[in-house]
Design a protein around this nucleic acid. Structure first.
Lengths: 253, 253
DNA sequence: TAAGATTTGTTCGTATGTATC
DNA sequence: GGATACATACGAACAAATCTT
């Protein structure tokens, strides 16, 4: 004990990581927006006093996070890039790869959020958006004959929810709901594949989606929320009945 | 229009990115878990037929996503790393940096989720967890005298919610709620800093947290949900009254 | 079409840092 | 302290992509 203030015993960040942070800071300080040009490699080397390899590793870090994009050739270089919803979903999926989510975890969230989303959405969708949703809801007019068809219908149904989430004005809510639809699309596995499809459950789910679009078209938020709540309940029952479970899997960029 | 199917206009993935994907796949195929050792640099070079620099850039990409960690020295090398909640939050915050979330967006989510979370939590918390929450709720027994104090109290209150979210069994719900608490902690900016603190609102918020812990201790989920719903309503009112808004800002790793 | 300019992409050799034995 | 086994960093050279003329 000699009174010297300890330097932080942080797990030593490598030089590329430090350079990446400096670049990030450089961008934020200047309030650069999407498309703004960053210094080129040679300038970065001079700016941060590191080698070309280190600069490149730093750029790859930022690129992996979606924060910059890079092009070759004259007029090329690195630019501030908008992080896409797609990339954000992938990065988040990497986290939940280690978390063992259950079907009921996801449905607890869906029950809480999706009715709320459609309540807000009622009356604010354009005719084209409503038509698109209607088209999605009206695919597969007949109940599935095979397990393969049933899986296709399930995925189509999730596409309806994903598209709906794209339209949400609340981007946080839209993102979370879209994320769940994607997880369910990519990661659901059926245990009882040869179980005969349940015609009643199928018909009710389809009815719900069509009624939902009608309620949205009419601008009736309360009705839309009610229908969605009922739909979520039915969907969860179907998942439980089919003993669906989730599979651990990295999602590709 | 000549009927030729366009090749995907993908922005050409660089070799390091491709190698990073191959490594990811290599890991998934072998179902490696946290701590498993990856081939060292020399082996990677042979395995993927690329140079050291390319391998290093690929490893940086994976490191930036939290998927691997690297140590130097004998017995060192790269290892499968568990993505931390902290890192996942940072990566997600990068996405929302470009999305212009509003206070009401966040509170629409909090109102939908936090009562549901505490409903599930009732009766399943340990004594130690409840004591910790109680301690957090009972800080700042007196109303703030200055704007600075008020900000501190606000942050302390958010810490209560963040801690609660750590305890949620539903990791998706816990993550989203913790993410919002963090956004509010890091990014809130007060417009009317010198507004005299509202003693009634402060007292009510404090009361809510204490009552909430009591309800959780009693295992009364419905009461907990009711209190949390009321608390969220009050918190939103306070934010609106103070004309709080969010600030665009990258969150550091 | 072709040539030239510009900028990133990739490789290799070498040297240094760091942790373990 | 010395040997060993790793990652880390640098610099120079060359390759590839893309834009301009």
């Amino acid at each position: 004990m000699d009174g010297v203030v300890e330097t932080t015993p942080r797990p030593r960040r490598s030089r590329p990581v430090r350079v990446a942070d400096e670049i990030k800071q450089w961008v934020v300080e200047r309030d650069l927006r999407q498309g703004a040009k960053l210094p080129n490699e040679a300038e970065m080397i001079a700016l941060f006093g590191v080698s070309k390899g280190t600069v490149r590793e730093a750029m790859r870090i930022l690129e992996a996070q979606g924060l910059v994009v890079t092009r070759t050739g004259p007029g090329g270089g690195s630019f501030v890039g908008k992080v896409s919803a797609e990339r954000a979903r992938s990065l988040l999926a990497n986290y939940f790869y280690f978390q063992d989510l259950s079907i009921s975890d996801i449905y607890q969230m869906r029950r809480a959020l999706e009715p709320e989303m459609v309540r807000s959405l009622a009356g604010s969708l354009t005719g084209a958006q409503l038509d698109e949703l209607e088209a999605l809801a009206e695919r597969y007019p007949e109940p599935a004959q095979t397990a393969e068809q049933e899986k296709e219908q399930h995925i189509a149904s999730l596409a309806f929810h994903a598209r709906l989430s794209d339209f949400a004005e609340n981007r946080l809510m839209g993102f979370v709901i879209g994320f769940m639809a994607r997880i369910l699309t990519d990661l659901t596995v059926y245990r009882r594949l040869y179980e005969p499809p349940n015609r009643t459950l199928w018909e009710r789910g389809r009815r719900h989606q069509i009624d939902l679009v009608a309620a949205l078209r009419a601008g009736d938020g309360e009705a839309a929320a009610r229908i969605m709540a009922s739909h979520m309940k039915g969907a969860e029952e179907m998942m439980v009945a089919q003993e669906v479970h989730l599979k651990r899997q990295f999602i590709e960029d």
